[in-house]
Simulated scan of single mutants.
Amino acid sequence: MSELINVNADGRALTLEFAWVGPERASLQGEAAEPLVFLHEGLGSLAMWRDFPEQLCTALNRPGLVYSRPGYGRSTPRPAAERWGLDFMHLQAEHVLPALLAALGVTGRYHLFGHSDGGSISLIHAARCGARVASCTVMAPHILVEEFGLVSIREARRAYLETDLRTRLAKYHDDVDSAFWGWNDIWLAPEFPQWNIEALLPALACPVLAIQGVNDQYGTMAQIDGIAQRHADTRLLKLPACGHSPHRDQPAAVIAAGQLFFASLTPA
């Protein structure tokens, strides 16, 4: 069951939905007590992860923190008239996530696990605020805008207006229009092709595991290859017969890769 917590981020009072999963933090010591923080996709929420965070954290024997960003799930909705700018992921990485961690008493090291927009936010956070980030796992992250992905985002807009997509998403968001239009409007804004975080990647100071499906409809391998080109301590996993959500398409492969990755972080 998720909980709610009030935080102040970037001068705004926000209510954020969160849940702890996996082993109890209090029962673990040392590196095993360092939580894994999950950051969801652009249309996601805490609930849309389903039981994957619990499965992964149990396999890694460490606690997990899952939350819904503002505008999603049970968190503070986006005001109807508010339009996100090119810095919307930076605001989440540099203000909202640090405020949540502080409010929950996470004062030591932690690991990031981000999907899609959440992967991009993880990379920005690790590059800009990352002295305490022990590792960063990203699935289908975005480091630049590709026309290939924008085609799928335009199709998502059509589906939201013409099919049952809105009804299906409404199960996971208190204000489904807040979630959908916040994401879709900025990604399809005329200025959005300027968005790019490649210049931040050399500032990463932690190991990175970057995962992408070969059949991802929102991005090509240029996304994770670009991370490896700019950050030497990057492991790549390219999954055949896999789309934009590796944790749903091939959860066992993602968990196995996570176990190998975390084993490599632990000194012998």
Rank of each mutant, 00 (worst) to 15 (best):
P202I: 05
P202R: 01
L204T: 09
V214K: 14
A210Q: 06
C206N: 01
W195Y: 04
I197M: 14
A189D: 15
I211Q: 00
I186N: 09
A205K: 13
V214P: 02
E198S: 06
L204P: 09
A199L: 02
A199Q: 00
L201C: 01
Q194H: 12
G213T: 00
A210M: 13
V214W: 11
V208W: 02
N196R: 01
F192R: 03
E191T: 15
L204E: 03
N215C: 15
L209D: 04
W187F: 12
C206K: 05
V208M: 06
N215D: 15
G213H: 08
P190D: 14
E191H: 10
F192W: 15
A205V: 00
L204F: 07
A189N: 07
N196M: 07
E198A: 06
G213E: 01
A199T: 01
P190F: 14
Q212W: 09
I211M: 03
L188E: 12
P193G: 04
A203D: 14
G213Y: 09
P193T: 08
L188R: 03
Q194K: 13
P207W: 02
L200P: 08
I197K: 09
V214C: 07
E198W: 00
I197T: 03
N215F: 12
L200D: 11
L200C: 05
N215R: 15
W187K: 10
P207K: 02
L188A: 05
A210F: 08
V214I: 11
A210P: 12
E191W: 09
F192P: 01
N196I: 01
A210S: 11
A205W: 03
I211P: 06
I197N: 09
P193V: 02
V214G: 10
W195T: 05
W195H: 10
C206F: 10
A199N: 10
I186H: 07
A205H: 13
N215L: 14
A210H: 08
L204H: 08
L201Q: 04
A189Y: 15
L209P: 10
E191V: 13
P190N: 08
A203F: 02
V214F: 14
L201D: 01
I186C: 09
A210D: 07
P190V: 11
Q212F: 14
P202Y: 02
F192I: 08
V208R: 00
F192S: 10
A203V: 02
I186G: 03
C206W: 03
P207V: 00
N196C: 06
P207I: 04
G213W: 07
L209N: 05
